[in-house]
Write a protein that binds this DNA or RNA. Structure first.
Lengths: 307, 307
DNA sequence: TTCATACATGAAAATATTTAATGATACGAG
DNA sequence: CTCGTATCATTAAATATTTTCATGTATGAA
């Protein structure tokens, strides 16, 4: 199997056995410490001695003694094991605190995260959160990203998925517009207002259909290429927007937007927290997920009272 | 099997696989370097990632990249492997040169080794020979001794045994005595000489029986507790000794002793070079053994011409 | 002597690793 | 665009290694 110049590195179990035996000077006791039988330790040490071609212990009547070779070899083994433990510690430390990189869409970042991150950071100073916004779903295989918030159906195989928020669509406008503009008592009043669209320009036609409203011209009004910009335009009093609940929730709670009428369109997608299975139970991932879910729960509770 | 605080150290194969893959950034190429299949490397790295609970590589379309975790972990692994290699090198260095400890009987040391060691040391300056003389056979299990010359039947199980010399018993005396003392033409002439005995005082009776000689009183003469002293007494011209071939060979070759008559008694024992199987093929052991055998061969050749 | 303790050992059982075959995906050349 | 090549992943089967189990041997104590 193995050839000439091959490196014959000993097995870790053999090295560990050697190290423990060298410390206890007893196979039996070492076996106890290693949670194996005495025979296993005996075999391991014997195998190591054979591999190295050197006797590591003097087997004397009642006691064990290291040979000169064993005495000289021991520190190398101790250092090697130490490095491995240090490596494991390094990985633990790095996973249990430090940087948490989260990928979200630019919209979610702008309308959901940015307004609340301060709260999270204040209560979790040990977590150094890094938000990376991208239109595409992040590929966990090729980026050092531990979790993401995604908009979709929640069907991502091989990922740990937690539902964050359902999504509904309903009209919103700024409180100023409601107070000072033309009346907005019923859907029909929209005829007197600017309709704000997203890039698809599909939402208003669908909503109007749901509201049995065919008296207004849904082709009117400006459109924006980012959902967040539609909402921001509404906040600025530019007109009436169709908001998606998750993204508008914060502005509704803080009174920058008000919800109009009582016609709500369920949206096909929802927001989900996803992470690779391997990192899904890391301390910092769990903490951030719990916080997201809590915030979303508060949003939902607040939304339920807006109409 | 393993519980809570258990140390989960990775297997060496997994670490080596990781290290090579990190260097090649290719499972396939790493597999070639490790002389295993690509699948084996894939399994190993996957297992390591699972054990550590961390992704070590980004698997991208065409290439592999270390994750941050992998990048940080790699140096620990390199150091650990390096320590292990250094340990192996240390053992190799210590076995391939440096000290060679040989256990022999005091007689063999005095009458065989001491006169020739200079030659060996001169031609093998890299070997630091340490001779330890003891009456008892050394216990390789409890002493840092790599080889021994033993007197016996050559039946030592578990040891590597090489025959060094047969043993014969015959009368010797100093050339001065032969030249200047009473005649020593035939065994009967021994009646006129002092017989030198070892502690057992058995040899002369047996030799006389073999020589069909019943005319002399074998109870005469001093005895010595070490065989070497019997020979030294003969060299000093104190009388005629029954020498054992191996121990007298050097003095015969250098003319300090002469062999008498033609009656030789085969001795039941011989001299053997023994060493633990593990160290029997070490460079320095092989060298010293070869030298011993060569010297013994020269002795035998020289002895064959003495009568 | 007999008991208790410690290490060695050989065969069987339990695990782990490696292979071989195949799948999936991406890239580049016609 | 399709094929051929190269890469990594995955599965079950073949191997190899490790551990246990059941003893064996030797020593020191009672």
């Amino acid at each position: 199997m193995y050839e000439g110049g091959m490196e014959r590195l000993p097995q870790i179990t053999a090295l560990r056995s050697f190290e423990v035996v060298a410390r206890c000077l007893s196979f039996t006791q070492a076996a106890r410490e290693l949670n194996v039988t005495q025979g296993a330790v005996s075999h391991q040490v014997k195998g190591l001695e054979k591999l190295l071609g050197v006797r590591l212990f003097h087997r004397e009547r009642q006691r064990l003694r290291l040979t000169d070779a064993g005495t000289g070899y021991l520190p190398f083994v101790r250092e090697a094991i130490d490095r491995l433990k240090a490596g494991a510690d390094y990985l633990d430390a790095r996973e249990n605190s430090g940087v948490l990189t989260v990928s979200v869409s630019p919209n979610f970042a702008a309308k959901w995260l940015v307004n609340r991150l301060g709260v999270f950071s204040a209560s979790h100073p040990e977590i150094d959160l890094r938000v990376t916004a991208s239109l595409q779903h992040v590929d966990f295989n090729s980026k050092d990203v531990e979790m993401a918030v995604r908009h979709g159906h929640g069907d991502w195989p091989n990922l740990h998925v937690t539902k964050l928020a359902r999504e509904e669509i309903f009209p919103v406008c700024s409180p100023d517009l409601l107070r000072e503009g033309a009346a907005l008592e019923s859907p029909e009043d929209l005829a007197q207002h600017v309709l704000l669209h997203d890039a698809s320009r599909n939402d208003w036609p669908i909503w109007c259909a749901a509201a049995n409203l065919d008296t207004i011209d849904v082709s009117r009004g400006p459109s924006f290429d980012q959902t967040s910009m539609v909402i921001d335009a509404a906040i600025a009093g530019q007109g009436v927007a169709l908001a998606r609940s998750a993204l508008a929730a914060h502005d509704l709670r803080t009174g920058k937007l008000v919800r109009l009428f009582n016609v709500t369109l369920p949206a096909p997608y929802g927001y989900f927290i996803v992470s690779p299975k391997a990192s899904s139970d890391h301390e910092k991932v769990r903490k951030f997920r719990a916080w997201l879910v809590e915030e979303a729960g508060a949003d939902a509770a607040a939304l339920a009272t807006t109409v």
